[in-house]
Simulated assay, not measured.
Amino acid sequence: MRMRAAAPGMARAGGRGMGRGWGWLWLAPAVLVAALFFGTAVGETRIPLATVIEVLAVKAGLSSAALDPIDASVIWHYRLSRAVVAACGGASLALSGLILQALLRNPLAEPYLLGISAGASTGAVLIAVAGVGGGLVGMSAGAFAGALTAFALVAGLAHAAGGGSGLRGAGVIILAGIAGSQMFNALTALIIAQSASAEQARGIMFWLLGNLSGVRWPDTGLALPVAALGLAVTLWHARALDAFTFGAEAAAALGIDLRRTQAVLIGTAALVTAVMVSIAGAIGFVGLVVPHAMRFLVGTRHARLVPATALAGAVFLVLSDVVSRIVIPGQVLPIGVITALVGAPAFAVVMVRGRQR
């Protein structure tokens, strides 16, 4: 009887979602371009806006003006490439959090809190520092294996602890995620202590906090396709994600192949998280803050929530990166510090609201 009742409930939810318009969608490209331009124009060194526009016009083939080599290099090779990777990473992490929250029916689920980012960090450090794979395996592949291992461990631990639905189930899986994060962070520290030089250790520890300083155009060749793949897969499974928010029984009653869908979506969440970690380190709370904000703005139907979350995640991480560069004059903060300062209060709000419900 519960499965029969789920479908009408979903129909009503879908009807409410259809009632809200799609008029905002045509603004998405303009908003993204504006965020990328802002991330390119603002930085540690003040460069006149006219110079920024001139450099971008020349690089786009719209002008043949003579450029200052230093300004051109800062704007094109440093700031714009960094903004593009930040946008890809923000969209990827936000979608990963959206997937995990729907599949686990847990409002606190996101790759950082569930230990997926920590597992990806351990896998990346094993390849980069300990030399596992003998140079035949890339950092992204190692991070992907670590992310999947971490999720499997956290899910197994939560199941063994008897996590169910509701507030207790949410608490159990978050506690399992904290335990998994601590274990993989300890493994990462052990690998660094045993295999890295003092200079390597300093660089890696800064990278683990989330760092886009070393990002250049070649990194977009990995970040952009993976972000596009994550968006496409999540959009393709939007109806399944709607069903999973009502529980696995409701999804099965609608004819959804639970194992295949869960495997594809969890694999996608792990992949996009792993790639971002391999490029910029562990950046927390993006997958927690952005999906909740977008549910408030556009509703809960995933056909609309998925593109809104991807766009908001991209803009959020670009703006966070700008803040990390200018908040302390002459010093660049790890971007993970900025996202944590925003995400920690949001985490507390979600916890309190969940307890009240």
Rank of each mutant, 00 (worst) to 15 (best):
P291C: 04
A161G: 11
S195C: 15
A91F: 09
G343A: 06
G354V: 01
V85I: 09
F37K: 01
P225H: 07
L305A: 03
L190T: 12
A91V: 00
P345M: 10
L100H: 03
A346M: 15
V349K: 11
A312M: 14
I191V: 15
A196N: 10
A41G: 02
S278E: 10
A280M: 07
S92G: 13
A179Y: 02
Q101F: 09
M3P: 11
A238V: 00
A240I: 05
F37N: 02
T309D: 04
Y112K: 04
R20C: 06
I47Q: 08
R20P: 02
T234I: 06
G90N: 06
A252C: 05
P218Y: 15
R355M: 10
L95H: 12
L25I: 13
H302L: 09
S213N: 15
G89W: 11
A340I: 04
R301S: 14
F151V: 03
V272T: 12
A250C: 09
S320H: 08
R260S: 08
V74E: 02
W236I: 06
R168A: 10
G255M: 13
A143M: 10
R4Y: 08
G89N: 08
V31D: 00
A124S: 14
V352M: 15
A34T: 03
L258E: 03
S81L: 04
R355G: 00
H237E: 04
A269V: 00
G336N: 04
A102W: 13
P345W: 15
I173W: 02
G123F: 04
F285H: 07
H302Q: 13
V58K: 12
A161H: 06
P107W: 04
R168P: 05
I116N: 01
V286D: 01
L208Q: 14
R82K: 12
M1W: 05
L222P: 00
I191A: 07
A270I: 04
L80G: 02
G163C: 12
M10Q: 14
M3T: 09
Q182L: 15
G336V: 04
G21H: 11
V315M: 08
G163R: 09
Q194A: 14
Q356G: 08
A87W: 15
R260C: 08
L126V: 03
Q331H: 10
R260D: 03
A11E: 15
G354L: 15
C88Q: 12
F151Q: 14
A250E: 11
L317W: 11
R20V: 14
G169Q: 12
V306P: 11
L80Q: 04
G146T: 00
F144L: 15
A282M: 09
R353K: 12
H292E: 02
D71N: 14
A196T: 10
A6I: 13
A252D: 07
W207H: 05
Q182N: 12
A87P: 13
T273M: 11
P334M: 02
A344D: 04
L222N: 01
L62G: 13
P307L: 04
L27Y: 05
T40W: 08
A83D: 07
I338G: 02
L36P: 07
G180V: 06
I326N: 09
V31R: 00
L333Q: 00
I283D: 00
A124G: 11
R239N: 08
L49I: 06
A145S: 11
A198I: 01
A198P: 01
A65E: 10
L209A: 13
L235E: 08
A83I: 03
